[in-house]
Design a protein around this nucleic acid. Structure first.
Lengths: 78, 78, 78, 78
DNA sequence: ATTTTAGGAGTGCAAC
DNA sequence: GTTGCACTCCTAAAAT
């Protein structure tokens, strides 16, 4: 036959490898932005927190922040 | 000789395995506490956040919370 | 001034968010390839192992495989 | 009442914190064993692989190793 | 049954 | 160079 099982497997693997390279490139780009931000004086760690918060649905986020406050108060945290 | 290299390696591996079992037991205990808390009506996810916050040095924590607030304001978050 | 600090921060965050979306898209593509492979009868877990092995330098890989064999023999594994 | 909700939450949190300390202690012990092994000339990375292999059911392990071989051959790996 | 979520392990980077 | 930190991956549990 024109295409052996071995070739099929190889093609799948190679597609994955190409995609992983692309992904790696983007990860590097993200790292660059954080470094650029840090060089400008921003706190990268906090920026990561912000990105996470913005991923949440606003209502969920506010709800959670509220519960966190409650628990902090219960424990005398802050 | 009394103790072959093979035995030495085996003993090291077995010590690691014993320790990993202990660790697993404790992880399960922690999980139990969270489940108990959840059954009592507490929000386990928020509890995890609290545990993380309490691990930080209070000054660092307050400093970070402050920067988070600043960035949130800058982005109109909240 | 034309560009406030707030805008600068916002732009950085938005660049990160765009890049993370792209990255997410590629991750999904990779997942799709694995699913396609699985549907064809391949073992996705083993494919992941293969991808990892192909990432290594051939000499390093062979060297490591050799040491693994040695340790397995020492422990009567296999 | 004798025990307020705040106390209940605090007690749960403190139990978790104690357990996490124990867990951390064991993790450190494990690290120590790997370091001791390394000092004796063993390859810690390979030891981790061995530990993982020994966790698997022997039949599953052999089956998987077999499929890995097959795929490696299909790709001319080795 | 599918999809999300958390914990753990491993890897690589970075700072010291 | 080594220690710690952060990101990724993967497995397993959980919720829907």
């Amino acid at each position: 036959m024109a295409e052996s099982a071995d070739d099929r497997l190889r093609l799948l693997i190679e597609r994955i490898e190409r995609l992983e390279e692309e992904k790696k490139g983007i990860s590097d780009d993200i790292k660059d932005v954080y470094n650029e931000a840090k060089a400008t004086g921003y706190d990268a760690k906090v920026m990561r927190i912000i990105v996470r918060l913005r991923k949440m649905k606003p209502d969920d986020r506010r709800e959670q922040e509220c519960v966190v406050e409650t628990y902090k108060n219960a424990l005398g945290l802050d």
